[in-house]
């Protein structure tokens, strides 16, 4: 029983592949349309993913700089050290004394001559503080509370930059979602029409099959297979387009990155992303075919 059912499905599958191959140009065109429609949202998605990864690479975990007042004493430094240790939001911190800061400035900027002419060290003591990953709001609160400590002159934290990036990524996500919805609808429409034309050319066969006692599921099976297989092949095309695009961009990026001594490299879609994309495209193809079949098959009744 199950064996017969499986062989039936296998025959429909092979039959559908043959039908696809028998009209190569038409099949190829609709597969390419589906592929392009999918590669747009998926491509933007992977670019955003990479943007997030690159921004993480340059920024690391959120970092703040605490500049003490110029007249801060050693006991003041000790008090702040204690408070920082007690704060749960802070993962680690580093003390940079004014003399160490001056030394670093002389070495790194080649301003040895200028700085050696100074009467006294103009730099303050400072702490570099790393915090847990958190929203921009939380970090801003932390900044304000530390700013209130009496020994502190200034707390520097570029919250605006983090906010801007977040907003940008959020915007990107909305664009991807909108594109995905629009183009998915387009794919369903394309499949609906493809199957409608097929049903029209198979009208006689459908009529005769109904007369001889074919069930609806028997009649619609080849059309559903056709939709699903085209969806799957379209999804594969999309994956190829994206892989090719990332490969090409990476070659260009390596040149640019070399000029700026940066390590820029776009990541490809992950295996699970690839698999979900294929599943989704197959499902969309099937859905378009399903709607078309439901709309058109009942209109064909034998007379």
């Amino acid at each position: 029983m199950i064996h017969a059912w499986l062989t039936q499905h296998w025959h429909v599958f092979v039959f559908t592949l043959k039908r696809l191959v028998s009209t190569p140009v038409t099949s190829l065109l609709s597969i390419v349309v589906i592929g392009i429609a999918f590669s747009l949202p998926a491509g933007i998605y992977i670019l955003m993913d990479n943007l997030r990864a690159i921004s993480g690479q340059t920024a690391g975990s959120p970092q703040m700089s605490l500049y003490l007042k110029l007249n801060a004493s050693e006991s003041d430094v000790e008090k702040i050290r204690q408070r920082l240790q007690d704060n749960a939001q802070i993962t680690r911190f580093q003390f940079i004394s004014k003399s160490a800061a001056l030394l670093q400035l002389q070495q790194s900027s080649g301003l040895m001559d200028v700085t050696s002419g100074l009467a006294r060290n103009p730099l303050p003591d400072a702490f570099v503080v790393n915090t847990h990953d958190a929203t921009a709001e939380t970090l801003e609160q932390l900044q304000t509370s530390m700013q209130a400590w009496p020994e502190i002159e200034h707390v520097q934290f570029d919250a605006a930059w983090a906010k801007r990036l977040n907003a940008l990524l959020e915007f990107g996500r909305t664009v991807v979602l909108m594109l995905a919805i629009l183009l998915s609808t387009a794919i369903i429409a394309v499949m609906f029409n493809t199957i409608r034309l097929q049903i029209l050319t198979k009208r006689e066969e459908i009529e005769v099959s109904k007369l001889i006692g074919a069930t609806n599921s028997f009649i619609q099976r080849p059309f559903l297979y056709f939709g699903a297989i085209q969806g799957l092949l379209g999804g594969m095309t999309a994956l190829c387009i994206i892989a090719l695009a990332i490969h090409t961009m990476n070659e260009e990026l390596t040149e640019i990155a070399a000029l700026y001594t940066l390590n820029l490299h776009l990541q490809h879609l992950s295996t699970s992303d690839n698999i979900s994309l294929l599943f989704f495209s197959t499902w969309l193809g099937w859905l378009g075919a399903r709607i078309s079949v439901a709309t058109h098959l009942w209109q064909i009744e034998p007379k």
Partner: peptide
């Protein structure tokens, strides 16, 4: 309905061959 039609063999006036 399909299962009723499977009990019947129908020779159509217009043959309905494919």
């Amino acid at each position: 309905l399909p299962f009723l039609r499977r009990k019947i063999g129908f020779v159509f006036q217009d043959h309905k061959l494919l």
